[in-house]
Design a protein around this nucleic acid. Structure first.
Lengths: 189, 189, 189, 189
DNA sequence: ACATAATCGAGACGGTACGTCTAGTCTTACG
DNA sequence: CGTAAGACTAGACGTACCGTCTCGATTATGT
């Protein structure tokens, strides 16, 4: 009854993922339709429904696919913890600023709120690696022994997401630096 | 051309707001339709479109309406800053834990991502008061002079929203306490 | 729940019926789609589904609409029964020969085979009047008293339909004349 | 490029024909799908498309296959023409009355209307033998010299098909008898 | 008190996308 | 090569909502 992955057409898979990302950049998430993806990819709708559960699942795959080939997720360790963290945080700010990347993230975030299964995948396959990389760097740098590393990581990313999500203020490098400074104050001896 | 608020039917307004909240609780946000609201409220669709711009605007009104009668948004000042913050943070965690309230908040947050105008209203009418209350308490309590209060507030709420949004871990009182502890370390002398 | 005929748009009704007949003539019945009708008529699909049960029902309406304004269904009585019958039978042959009319008839006949309700309507609203007209003429003309008029009518039309349906031979005026001659022999004293 | 009949699997052919007839009886013609036939027959779809042009062709083959083993198509000649004709006509009525057989015949008749090639085959391979048998009996019995035999045959079958196709009245033995009586009046001296 | 104008309930309308279904073609692995 | 299996492109199906647009039938002033 279910589809056999061995016989799956790689050609179609690629076309769908590419089309989805293209259209997302062009039209925004809420105007993104499965029919448009199918049409752009030159693919039958059924082929999409055969392999994915919906828009969110496609975008997730597209994103995983796009980032998998990217940089090894290991943070540089220059010896200066604050400087290193500033680098990551500023990179994150840049990601939020990029309309294309931001659109994708928004798309996934939206879908995530209604789809527990998808939320899991996003968390484990996209987010966790990024957070863990920071966590590893924290472990190395000089921090107080009693600090919960997971909490420390979220102390860094939390404010950034908060500002992106709720537009409580400008999301700039300066803001990132400020957050890092506070966090450093919180976790170093 | 625009509608005259003076002649607006309060009866219909109430029915729509109530129906919206009921249906939101029953079916979740993405399955919530204007037609269902109209039908449940015993109201013509045009009456909805005359006064609101879409789902998000309705929910926002409903939420404002529901919370307006609530507690005055002034944090108690017991003299113990950490304890006071723990109280607010735990209250926020409780809000996120309540499935019904959480659903509503999520609903709004979703819509916010695609609707700049709505985002403004949510930020200013719902969020800001809460954040400002915390900000005021911080001002009173003993904190370092060089700390940016807005950043401080987001240092507190950011991690909570992060965890709520991305499910990176359990959203418990203990977590709230940990965040407060770290934040206190960051902002007190 | 059901639609209110009073509020029906005559404009749409006309457009749909016209589009259906046009497309039927252009593409043939099995290539005729509801979507094409809707598109050609500049109408939403729902408007079609609101008022008709399917392709067959549309065609039926279109046909009734087209024939309603036509000739009063009374056969001329010249006093010469055989001549009068020849006239009707030849007219029927001509109808079968006209590709456009024939296509419509075929379409209806097909749909009829799977839809008892439609079959009834076709029979009562399209066929019966035609048959009854012939019946009336037979009543007037000189025929044997013991002849069942319904059987007589079908003795005339049956062979024509048979030939049209099953292509057992050419459907010409000569054939019509032959059938009339045989029928006359059967029913006159 | 075309398939080589020599290598054809008789096993598959049988399974397909049987499945087609079964499904036809179960679901009716318009709900009968090639996929269902393939699945029921345990056969790949390609195997069907390799050897048949579509539903109609399969049903035709199935029907020919089913009737080929049947009675030799020679009408008995008791010397009483009217009685002999009554026998055939009543048999035809019985065929139409049997829902299963009737369904199959209708199915083919439908397809015939859209497929000239199929129409030919149905006419020549299924219908003609039956008509010819009656024609032969007419030749023997006492009829007027000037009667066109083909017309005479259709004078008999036409009304029956007419009533079957258009449901203009009950299709009973009495009706068959009536038709025979009229036809006899038309063609005997 | 009454005309008059806007709001109201209802729901038909032109559209768009949904997710499903089947047609007919193409690909893969087996015998 | 023919076959069973089933993935593929294509596109129609009938449904659900969208946001706009008539319709009377209430209101609700404002002269």
């Amino acid at each position: 009854m279910t589809a056999d992955p061995a016989r799956r057409s790689e050609r179609s898979r690629r076309a769908i993922l590419d089309a989805a990302l293209e259209l997302l950049a062009e039209t925004g998430y809420s105007d993104l339709t499965i029919e448009a993806i199918a049409s752009r990819a030159g693919v039958g709708k059924q082929t999409i429904y055969r392999w994915w559960r919906g828009k969110g699942a496609i975008i997730l795959d597209a994103l995983i696919d796009a980032t998998s080939s990217a940089e090894a997720l290991v943070l540089p360790d220059t010896g200066d913890l604050e400087a290193d963290l500033r680098t990551v945080m500023r990179a994150t700010v840049a990601e939020f600023a990029d309309p294309k990347l931001s659109a994708t993230t928004r798309a996934l975030t939206i879908e995530t709120l209604n789809d527990e299964k998808l939320a899991e995948q996003v968390r484990d396959q996209l987010l966790r690696p990024q957070l863990d990389a920071v966590k590893k760097r924290l472990q190395a740098g000089p921090i107080r022994a009693d600090v919960d590393l997971d909490q420390a990581v979220e102390l860094l990313f939390g404010p950034l997401y908060h500002r992106w999500l709720l537009r409580t203020g400008p999301l700039t490098d300066e803001y990132a630096d400020g957050v890092v400074q506070l966090a450093i104050a919180a976790i170093t001896p």
